[in-house]
């Protein structure tokens, strides 16, 4: 079929004024704000990333809240409670950022409890010992901070601002975890064993938190163009390991990687091979605790339904009453 109005495909389609403005803002390292025009892909990608991040905070409460009632001293109990509570807070900051993109909390929650939304796989591992409270703080929160500090400069304003707040609060999380392990490593043989065993279990999953290797990370490239993400998975993982090695020495724990060695040439710590099959298994829902974590979230949501409804009904009655009084 021929037509005189067929556009000439050899010339790139002219981009709209809005899109040009969007590109200019990114170019200038400025921020995109909620009511700005943005490409649909950018919006979707952000909603996916921010809501996954929020879900991770919320599911991430569980492996630790598991120990609140059994914390071995009142000080540790208070610290742990405050930390798990912070995670609820961080989830809320992030849901709030996602909401500025048009996603509702109810929809995001429904997706989570229906098993349709992702969250960080790390929280599908169990916490059988108290030392896991240390490892989660030191390794898991440590890795999270590495990932999150650059996100403070994410191009989407509300996300960056939420991350600034979160990063400030997270620094306490990592330190308290380190202190738990330090205290255990300076304690009895049993306590040292407990700490080492826990580090053995959490080390590799923590490294996997940075995501698949760069040559196997489908969403990374676009996210970097959009300045949502600023460093590659492997780059961040390497920086994390470089920081961990001297910290492990202070603790006196061994990192469970026999191939870990210092590379004089690159001045970095070269690590052994990561078993990505495990990562993909857990991601696919076949981790130790996937089902339990979701069920607990679903139970809390379902059991809270009558409370949320009651408060909503009360608010309706109160405003009806106020209107009545104003009318009379």
């Amino acid at each position: 079929m021929t037509s005189t109005i067929t556009p000439d495909m050899s010339v790139p389609a002219a981009i709209s004024v809005e899109e040009q403005q969007f590109n200019d803002l990114l170019e200038a390292d400025s921020r995109i704000e909620p009511r700005d025009w943005m490409p649909e892909g950018y919006r979707k990608s952000l909603v996916r990333q921010i809501s996954q991040h929020a879900h991770s905070e919320i599911i991430g409460m569980q492996p630790e809240s598991n120990w609140i009632t059994r914390a071995p001293s009142l000080k540790r109990k208070a610290i742990l409670m405050a930390k798990v509570q912070d995670e609820a807070g961080h989830g809320l900051y992030l849901y709030s950022a996602a909401q500025t993109l048009g996603a509702t909390r109810d929809d995001m929650t429904d997706a989570l409890i229906a098993g349709k939304a992702r969250y960080s796989s790390i929280f599908n591992y169990p916490t059988p010992s108290w030392a896991d409270m240390g490892s989660i703080g030191w390794l898991v929160d440590g890795a999270a901070i590495c990932n999150q500090v650059p996100l403070c400069r994410a191009s989407y304003g509300p996300y960056g601002r939420a991350m600034v707040r979160i990063c400030k609060e997270e620094s306490f999380h990592q330190r308290q975890g380190f202190e738990i392990l330090l205290e255990l490593m300076q304690g009895t043989d049993e306590q040292r064993q407990m700490a080492q065993d826990s580090v053995n279990r959490w080390y590799w999953p923590a490294l996997m938190m940075f995501g698949p290797p760069d040559d196997d990370s489908p969403n990374s490239a676009q996210s970097m163009v959009w300045k949502i993400k600023r460093h590659s998975n492997d780059e961040l993982r390497q920086r994390f390991v470089n920081m961990l090695v001297p910290q492990a020495a202070v603790l006196g724990v061994t990192l469970p990687d026999p191939d870990l060695h210092f590379n004089e040439e690159t001045q970095q710590w070269d690590l052994g091979v990561i078993d990505w099959t495990e990562f993909h298994e857990v991601l696919a829902g076949r981790g130790p605790n996937n089902a339990q974590r979701l069920q607990r979230r679903r139970d809390a949501h379902d059991e809270g339904q009558w409370v949320r409804e009651a408060a909503a009904a009360y608010a309706r009655k109160q405003s009806a009453r106020t209107e009545e009084m104003a009318a009379s």
Binding site: P34, R35, S96, Q99, T100, L101, G102, A103, T104, R105, D106, R308, E309, A311, A312
Partner: peptide, 15 residues
């Protein structure tokens, strides 16, 4: 124009 993110569909409104 209202704030983005508000939805009348939610059981508790956004503040």
């Amino acid at each position: 124009m209202t704030t983005p993110g508000d939805s009348a569909a939610e059981i508790w409104p956004l503040w």
